[in-house]
Amino acid sequence: MSMLEVNHVSKSYGSKSVIADVNLAFEENKIYGLLGRNGAGKSTLLNIITDRIFPSSGEVKIDSENVADNDSKLGLMYLMSEVDLYPNGAKLSQIVKDSELIYGGFNHKLADKMIAEFKIDMGQKFGKLSTGYNSIFKLILALCLPVKFVILDEPVLGLDANHRELFYTELLDSYADNPRTFILSTHLIEEVANIISDVIILDQGRIILNQPVEDVLAKTHSVVGQKNEVEEYTKGLNVVGHDDMGNIRANYVYGDLDDRRLPDTVQLSNFDLQKLFVFLTNQYEGSKRHEN
């Protein structure tokens, strides 16, 4: 078992806290969604995990061993990020060769398939790539290098709809072929909602949710009906958001419902991750308490 742990990691720049006491455990062969609005601290956290920047406090471990300045652990991760760390003047094929040399392996079969599917010219120079092809090239590296933790920060940046579809297909295909841990960091929740098995929501540097998607969805309840009846029914529950349409009200509850009787005129159903995310990260006034 390979387990990636983040223990009490905090990071501040001057007096500004960017990451505040984050604790996480990434288990083997799961697909995690790290969700957060822009500026929530996702990239900073991922940079700390891969030892690109130092935390102000706390540590990151793989199999109980600190990853800081540790080749054998750092070599188990690949972080594809928005920032470009490859030399602009290098040819794509050369970058592949150099990465293969250092990581000690590369899945050429999969790479060739992806190169053909995405129609990317490997003779180009890295600095000349469009945003979309820049992402595609880095995704190829992410899926083809022999790592146990594939960490993708905003993976579909600049990709058109067709290429996004293709990417998710390739991701799941490669996952089925060679199960390993994926961490997808994104603000495009709808696209990954069914792909991820566990969801982590980061808001203002804090983890506000960390659970299997299924458990989370089972706790979402939209309560729709006459305003007064809905308010009566949801009294005391963790209401995270609401919609009004005339006299009809929808209250969105996150958490378990107790045995209270549901009036015939009030309808109950679940709501989706995207909606929950918006409610939780907008700091809806109705609730400061989020169940974990």
Binding site: E165, T169, L172, D173, A176, N194, I195, I196
Partner: peptide
């Protein structure tokens, strides 16, 4: 692969 759903699901 076809419907972009986690295989465990």
């Amino acid at each position: 692969k076809e419907f972009h759903i986690n295989p465990a699901t």
